[in-house]
């Protein structure tokens, strides 16, 4: 053999962990992560029921119009701050919906919050894999109530083209309750805006008498 003897680029010492020096450091982290993913897979078998607004029977017969409800719901629906999170290609349609041409700011939604503590709306924009499901559920849990979820695109809604894939969640409603589904692959910004307007309609119908806004 000519030329210099090649060396191990990572400088693994002799007699080290046979799986590699780096792995001996990170193995515990990986195992913890894997356990959390497997736990989520085994415990989230059934989808959450979609949160629908139900009027109790005793209220159906008598209409109550509350100005407090109106004011509260108007304030809520006019400042739904979305969480700045995108999973796949749908997020680019979400981004262009926020740009000047489609102008999400018309709905008081221009402030995409980088922190879930300040966000009201989680737009699941793109394919959700099981490995990403754990962090996304954590983001959802960190959002303050009332909170809403829009499932954007067929991947988030049912798995879409990746239905029955080994790594994709078959619908984000297995991970968290979904308020509005927006079909499309990807949906145009118009479709997302329509979905957001549907959500606005839904928020308008909450009442202090009935179901609290944005609960599971």
């Amino acid at each position: 053999m000519t030329g210099p003897k090649l060396i191990d680029p990572y400088g693994t010492p002799a007699g080290a962990d046979p799986r590699g020096a780096l792995q001996s450091i990170t193995l515990d982290l990986d195992r913890t992560e894997g356990e959390s993913v497997n736990k989520m897979k085994s415990t989230h078998l059934e989808p959450f029921p979609d949160p629908v607004l139900e009027v109790p029977d005793d209220l159906k017969r008598s209409v109550i119009v509350s100005s407090v409800d109106y004011l509260l719901n108007w304030a809520r629906k006019s400042s739904v701050f979305p969480l700045q999170s995108g999973l796949a290609c749908c997020s680019f349609e979400m981004i262009s919906a926020a740009m000047a041409r489609f102008d999400l700011a018309r709905f008081g939604m221009e402030a995409m919050r980088a922190s879930p503590r300040q966000a009201d709306l989680l737009i699941v924009a793109g394919t959700l894999t099981w490995k990403m499901a754990v962090p996304l559920r954590r983001l959802y849990d960190q959002m303050a109530e009332p909170r809403w979820v829009i499932s954007m695109g067929v991947c988030a809604t049912s798995g879409g083209p990746y239905y029955q894939s080994y790594s994709v969640v078959p619908g984000v409603n297995h991970i968290m309750p979904v308020d509005v589904y927006v079909p499309g692959c990807p949906p145009r910004p118009d479709a997302l805006l329509y979905g957001i307007m549907q959500l606005h309609d839904k928020i308008r119908r909450y009442s202090l008498n009935g179901q609290a806004a944005g609960r599971e």
Partner: peptide, 26 residues
């Protein structure tokens, strides 16, 4: 290999999904 572990799927995943005999288990 200096760091021989899974790269995309998670630790504890059953099997190797691009094998021809892999059957989606769930």
């Amino acid at each position: 290999h200096p760091n021989h572990k899974r790269i995309m799927l998670w630790e504890g995943y059953p099997g190797h999904p691009l094998r021809k005999d892999y059957v989606t288990y769930d």
